[in-house]
Amino acid sequence: MTGAMGNLLEVRGLRTVFDTRAGEVRAVDGVDLDVRPGECLGVVGESGSGKSVTFASVMGLVRSPGRIEEGAIRFEGRDLRALSQKELRRIRGRHIAMTMQDALTALNPALTVGEQILEVLYAHDETLPSGGRARTEAARKKAVEMLTLVGIPSADERLRYYPHEFSGGMRQRIMIAIALACRPKLLIADEPTTALDVTIQAQVLELIADIRTRLGMSVVLITHDLGVVSEYCDRVMVLYAGQVVEEGPTAAVIGDPRHPYTKGLLRSIPRLSLRGQPIEPIEGQVPDLIGLPPQCRFYSRCRERIDACLQPIAMREIGAARRARCIRLEEETRP
């Protein structure tokens, strides 16, 4: 784990639970993470691994029956958990922005896209004139600039359109424009290519990468696709059943995965370099997060399990920049 110096976002010991009739669901259980200025962090894992809940917790968007049980969340050194809702709203949208998985349901169908961008600008952009026609014109000009930035043609005219009048790829671009309206320092992109065809997926990801470079912002890219991570992310964090199981520079993790779950994810995706090699899905399912036994959470699906895995497993450092949660690392002797 990187030290505290210079990190934009730091999360330590985050535990987020949901109280249900069946019991307490530990959706996020002891997650530590850092996001550095200007970098792209990829967060991968199957559905139910805790990716979205982790960053909903960072944004202060977890609502009943969910709650943050413990943990520290610091952005630019400020403790977000100690802030009031009013203070948190000043940061959310202005300094940290998040795009949701499905643009059609995330956008308000009753408002034009222009109204939705203006709403963010009026709430968070302190550079706008204080009132009157000048404020409206300045905000509208910025809205046009944002739609142009994300590649929406005829942006001035399109401000008057409703979300359903755009294609899926265009709606995703509009949601990115809304998130970037106040030029945040951190963009959390939660499955930004869900339900899009392959060509449009590539366009959206290239757009995020290009804007990241131009604005110098940090990006957290939440996805289930290690292929996307290998192309766009500087570092990768692998989540499984609410815990981080591996983390490190993307090239190192993809080239030499150290946790059996990461290895399984890589075996389950097609790669041109391994043409002719069969794709091997990971057998079994993510475990029920209610009343988990104190053992490796990947135990029941792991090809490499041993009896010693039936105990709590801590993260282990692998050099200066990598770590993984596997007891077999103790057995390895590497130069």
Rank of each mutant, 00 (worst) to 15 (best):
V244E: 04
I176S: 08
G169R: 05
A321V: 14
V62W: 06
E137F: 12
H95S: 14
S84P: 04
A22P: 03
L221G: 05
G93Y: 04
L329Q: 00
L121A: 04
L9C: 13
R275Y: 12
L272H: 05
I318D: 11
T193L: 04
A179R: 06
Y232E: 02
G23V: 13
A209Y: 03
D225V: 04
A110C: 12
I222N: 05
R258E: 14
D256K: 15
A134R: 14
I91P: 12
A123R: 01
V113K: 01
I318Y: 05
P109T: 12
I282C: 06
L83I: 00
T112D: 03
S57R: 02
I279T: 14
A56D: 13
S154L: 11
E191S: 09
E246V: 14
A241G: 13
L187T: 02
F166S: 09
D197W: 02
M100K: 07
K185E: 14
Q243I: 08
R21A: 15
V198C: 00
I269D: 14
T54H: 12
I279C: 09
G242C: 07
L118N: 00
R94T: 01
K185L: 07
A22W: 10
P278E: 07
V286M: 07
A103W: 10
R328D: 00
E126L: 01
V204T: 00
V219P: 07
E317M: 14
E115R: 03
I269W: 09
S230V: 08
P192D: 03
L83N: 07
E145I: 01
R67D: 01
L80I: 11
E87C: 10
R160G: 14
Y240A: 06
Q295C: 10
G60H: 10
I290Q: 04
T148E: 12
P335E: 11
V28Y: 02
A143R: 02
V28R: 02
Y240C: 10
I282T: 01
A252Q: 15
L180E: 03
M5P: 09
D234F: 11
D32L: 01
G42N: 05
Y162D: 12
F55T: 00
F18P: 07
R160P: 02
P287F: 01
S52A: 09
A179D: 13
G276Y: 12
I211S: 03
I152G: 02
R323H: 12
R67I: 06
I306D: 06
R160M: 14
L33E: 09
P294S: 13
E115L: 03
K86P: 01
L14M: 08
A97L: 05
E206V: 02
K263R: 15
A106N: 06
E126S: 08
